[in-house]
Nucleic acid binder design. Structure first.
Length: 467
RNA sequence: GGUGAGGUGGCAGAGCGGCUAUGCGUUCGCCUGCAAAGCGAAUCUAUAGGGGUUCGAAUCCCUUCCUCACCUCCA
């Protein structure tokens, strides 16, 4: 599998020989997550599912930044401790992302639980004179890392010329960044240099090194983290270890709204909670995967509405397959279907192997859906054929992290009873009573589709946007 | 100002030297007691503008214009 590596500016073969270690920069827990966070996380979740489906062992670490000025400010406003704020938003994170059917990472390390590791790292940097202590903290000396800028392709001179860097008299160089900041208030921890808090970037260095070691396979995050966050992580980590930090740097494009980046500062965010309410998990996942991960994607209601249509086809397909009745398989048809399925599977894998091209993979998945719906439309779906298709269908569904609403056995029993009664009424041409039953069934979230020979039923996910 | 990524049919979105994806939309059919869903057919012949290179370019080169992101916290 090839993945575009921001560092080298080209696609690189992913080394899977010893499993794949992934570190994803997670969220700062000071507010609810929004669909921008969701996109990045869904992309990585899907990547992980794909690798695992090929029997590759994945070790997936995603951090929570739980010490940060924004958290502290929020705590001050609310009159509670920072810990109260961070734990509140960590649980809100899990609530949202569990609903989005995102698999739990192997670990969610928190900055506050790795203070010792960060201090140890800073000590070494100080010993090597790569960092220095100033009056208000410990700083990393950018000039001591000759490769600074290699990820973001920035030249130190340009950065200085850009002069958007805050002027701080206590720093030797305006580009130097904090490893440790002295603090008069909580939260703070003791360190050899004084009470304080860690800088932002150091946690990811400490935690990724601790849980994944050096030179792990993929380090990821949103594009906006390339500079300065990832650049600084590299500077710290490589100065500390003397080793390459990560093999591949994978960055996910921004979610925009009306062509502008969605962000807290612009106040144009759509929270995970909101989009779940309005569109539900499957629509959101398909939407997030419908553009190449490296490019921006625009949050467009028209686009989302279109996705509903596509999702209905998937639901239809599932129920056609699930409810197919026994019958004799037509050998020619079976052969054709096999060919189509193998081709779609190959297309699916080829697409993902080529820099994780999910829009193309989604296309392959929809070919499977279309094929099944076609056969069903011709009333030619039989159990053995459905089982064959189901194998491919469910495999792809699992990788994409989609979930069709299913019914309980009890619901199923009730339904079949009702449908039989309705069929009887229809035979007697008593349509008003038959329609009453259809209405009753519909209130259970079940839609009926009358085929020539039988009535197909399916449970449709309730989508907020449809009212 | 610097750096990076882009500009493809009504919309979304692949392709990245020749075989002109795909999806949605729209129109018309099939099916139905009516629906709904599904299916079929048709529709759209697109590649920001201008130069090149080539037998041949959306794909390579040059140039102009435009958009976005990063250069401060940000997924």
């Amino acid at each position: 599998m090839k993945i575009f590596d921001t560092m080298s500016g080209s696609e690189k073969e992913l080394d899977t020989s010893r499993g794949v270690r992934i570190y994803l920069c997670g969220v700062t827990v000071y507010d609810d997550s929004h669909i921008g966070h969701a996109r990045t996380i869904i992309v990585f979740d899907t990547l992980r599912r794909y690798l695992q489906s090929h029997g590759i062992k994945v070790r997936f670490i995603q951090n929570f930044t739980d010490v940060d000025d924004k958290i502290i400010n929020r705590a001050r406003i609310d009159g509670v401790s920072a810990e109260v704020i961070s734990s509140k938003y960590i649980s809100s994170y899990f609530k949202g992302f569990d609903s989005l059917n995102v698999m739990r990472a192997d670990m969610y390390p928190k900055a506050t639980e790795h203070i010792t590791e960060m201090i140890d790292l800073i000590k070494i940097l100080l010993d090597r004179k790569i960092a220095y202590v100033s009056t208000n903290g410990v700083y990393f000396s950018v000039s001591k890392f000759s490769e600074y800028g290699k990820l973001s392709k920035k030249k130190i001179d340009d950065l200085i010329a850009g002069a958007r860097v805050e002027v701080d008299e206590t720093k030797k160089d305006p580009l130097d960044f904090a490893l440790w900041k002295f603090a008069d208030d909580e939260p703070r921890w003791p360190s050899p240099w004084g009470l304080g808090r860690p800088g932002w970037h150091i946690e990811c260095s400490a935690m990724s090194l601790k849980y994944l070691g050096n030179d792990f396979e993929i380090h990821g995050g949103g594009r906006d983290l390339i500079f300065p966050h990832h650049e600084n992580e590299i500077a710290q980590s490589e100065s500390y270890s003397g080793c390459n930090f990560a093999k591949i740097w994978m960055h996910v494009g921004m979610v925009t709204i009306n062509g502008e980046k969605m962000s807290k500062s612009l106040g144009n965010t759509k929270s995970v909670d909101f989009v779940l309410q309005k569109w539900g998990p499957n629509i959101i996942r398909i939407f997030c995967l419908s553009g190449h991960y490296s490019k921006p994607i625009d949050y467009s209601e028209d686009q989302l509405r279109e996705t509903i249509t596509r999702w209905r086809q998937v639901e239809n397909c599932y129920y056609e397959l699930f409810l197919a009745e026994e019958g004799v398989i037509n050998p020619t048809l079976a052969r054709d279907v096999e060919t189509t399925l193998r081709a779609a599977e190959k297309e699916f894998d080829d697409a993902l192997n080529s820099d994780f091209n999910t829009p193309l993979a989604l296309g392959a998945f929809f070919k499977v859906v279309k094929t099944a719906n076609q056969i069903a439309g011709e009333e030619a779906m039989v159990r053995p054929l459905a089982d064959i298709i189901l194998l491919t269908f469910e495999k792809m569904l699992e990788i994409l992290g989609l979930k069709v609403s299913r019914v309980t056995d009890e619901e199923k029993k009730t339904l079949i009873g009702l449908i039989e009664r309705r069929a009887l009424l229809r035979d007697q041409r008593n349509f008003s009573d038959a329609d009453a039953i259809r209405k009753e069934i519909s209130s259970m979230g079940i839609v009926l589709i009358d085929h020539k020979k039988k009535t197909l039923w399916m449970k449709q996910e309730r989508i907020g946007a449809e009212g």
